[in-house]
């Protein structure tokens, strides 16, 4: 995606977010300038946000250059996010944090080393994941007494 298009989308989303925020702020009550209510400051913020977004939109429209947004390895980033999502989900649903963590570390390392994957590499990943999990258990559970369930 090019930078201009992405900026338009981002600014539009921010304005929508601002409007949702504005609705809640209006419900809270503005008060008056001598006794400002809970919505007073938020309403001022939304006004500023909308003005700034419009200025930024105009600036973007007037820009003659347009570069492509460079995000190499986007597939790996997406995989990292998905695996992280599944890790949190398994932690929330099943508990057993350290088993989930071990699996999380192993899967991520396997994905990152996918191109050079063989039995030896997998074995290495397995050992590293196990050592790191034990290390994290030692620090957080044993030393700091943090109950991660």
């Amino acid at each position: 995606m090019n930078s201009k298009k992405a900026t338009y989308i981002a600014l539009t989303l921010i304005i929508i977010l601002g409007l949702v925020y504005l609705k809640s702020a209006i419900d809270m009550g503005y008060g008056d300038t001598s006794t400002p209510g809970a919505g007073f400051f938020p309403i001022l913020l939304v006004c500023m946000l909308v003005v700034l977004c419009i200025v930024s939109l105009i600036q973007t429209m007037m820009r003659t250059d347009d570069k492509k947004i460079d995000l190499p390895n986007i597939r790996l980033i997406s995989l990292t996010v998905i695996i992280s999502f599944l890790f949190i989900l398994s932690w929330v649903w099943f508990g057993y944090f350290y088993i989930s963590l071990f699996a999380y570390l192993l899967i991520l390392m396997t994905v990152y080393y996918f191109e050079e994957m063989n039995k030896k590499r997998f074995g290495k990943n397995l050992v590293i994941s196990l050592v790191l999990t034990v290390l994290i258990y030692g620090v957080f559970d044993y030393l700091l007494g943090l109950n991660l369930t």
């Binding site: 990292t80 992280s84 890790f87 949190i88 963590l101 999380y104 570390l105 991520l108 390392m109 990152y112 080393y113 590293i128 994941s129 790191l132 994290i136 957080f140 943090l146 991660l148």
Partner: peptide, 17 residues
């Protein structure tokens, strides 16, 4: 590839703790 999973894991623990 080893460092990133480790710090991600610690980061989530940090957010939870």
């Amino acid at each position: 590839p080893v460092l990133i999973p480790l710090i991600l894991g610690i980061s989530f623990i940090g957010a939870f703790s």
